[in-house]
Design a protein around this nucleic acid. Structure first.
Lengths: 197, 197
DNA sequence: CAGATCGCCTACCGACTGTTAGTTTTATTA
DNA sequence: TAATAAAACTAACAGTCGGTAGGCGATCTG
């Protein structure tokens, strides 16, 4: 009867995941039921299973898509040969842009990954750990070349990443500040907090 | 049969809330069942209702306790007459200490408040909004007296608050860095990011 | 010691959970 | 147009959810 309307360039599975991302963001993974999701997709709950295998598969797709995007980016940034502080700025700007343009997915991969089932859970944790360690090593490099203040690098990474996750709140009051201005403000505060005077 | 062992200085209700906080932190509010909670308390699920009225009452207590602590503190800090940047530093240090010493509760009030039932939900949102606005006004004051760089004050507040929420991750790798050192690192990065040179 | 109160228990309620089975409708292709 | 594949439907499963009712034993109070 009612067929899932798939957007121009997307499979129905992708449509489902998009709708799910909105709901997971709004209510959380556990508080979103498959019947909720189905209703917002415009279909019966059972019909979803023609396109996905399980509820947690949706979460997996969201989390690992996001994680992979960041992993690819840090690879690129880190092999650029730029000074450390420029690398950090590049990472920061990328995080901010991702948060602004795909904030639901980034938000979910940040806060709901706990609900991944087990082989994926440890996988995700691992990828995350590696990413942060790599980020910290860039900061460490900057410290040793006196471009960045002496500090605990992992702490600096935590501050950066979590500060950016605050953009989610900004999303809700979009009107006040343009995306570009927001980015400049964040970079200014965070980079100047790192930079050796 | 098995009676709820209440700690020396605490009612049984407080014991339940403490255990619930641990579980809400670990698995999230929605994914924590009353039977889960009861088991960890050492009692049958139905027995919990001799001490609490509902699952969401537990969440309410946690969220509003935390919110009130911060509201009282900003009141005190803001009426101190210190320069703005010192006020910001005081707020920061208070946030960090709260996060370190009561991180489960702070974490929950930060991430699970969405699941509050409705009269409390808007109440909580309101209290939060007022707090942030007040924080932003302090920063604004610092900007006008040229003690703080020109920036969007609400953005700065978001950065501060979310940066601090990252301490939750730090909790999991406690060994590496002492609490005092962590506090100094965070304050250094964030305050220097704000300060006008 | 009598009576009341407290806090736990078992048993159960109706609603909802993710998911499956089997069937029917729709779209594609020969 | 007839056959096939894709995707929707209804119905239901077994289990869990938050929460309530009522009884039973321990403890407190007169």
């Amino acid at each position: 009867m009612a067929k899932i309307k798939s957007k121009k360039n997307g499979t129905k599975k992708e449509t489902i995941i998009e709708v799910a991302a909105k709901l997971f963001h709004k209510k959380g993974f556990s508080a979103t039921s498959m019947r909720d999701l189905a209703e917002h997709v415009g279909v019966e709950a059972a019909s979803l299973y023609n396109h996905i295998q399980s509820k947690s598969e949706i979460l997996q797709e969201i989390c690992f898509n996001v994680a992979n995007v960041f992993t690819v980016n840090i690879e690129e940034v880190d092999s650029s040969g730029s000074p450390a502080i420029n690398k950090v700025e590049a990472l920061l700007r990328f995080h901010i842009k991702q948060m602004i343009n795909h904030y639901e997915n980034v938000y979910i991969s940040d806060r709901e990954w706990k609900h991944l089932p087990d082989p994926y859970l440890s996988n995700y944790r691992n990828q995350r750990r590696i990413y942060r360690r790599r980020f910290a090593m860039i900061i460490e490099e900057g410290i040793q070349r006196n471009a960045i203040k002496k500090m605990d690098a992992p702490t600096a990474v935590l501050i950066m990443l979590h500060a950016i996750s605050g953009i989610e709140s900004w999303q809700r009051s979009k009107k006040k500040l343009s995306a570009e201005l927001l980015e400049e403000n964040m970079v200014m505060i965070l980079i100047e907090g790192l930079r050796e005077k």
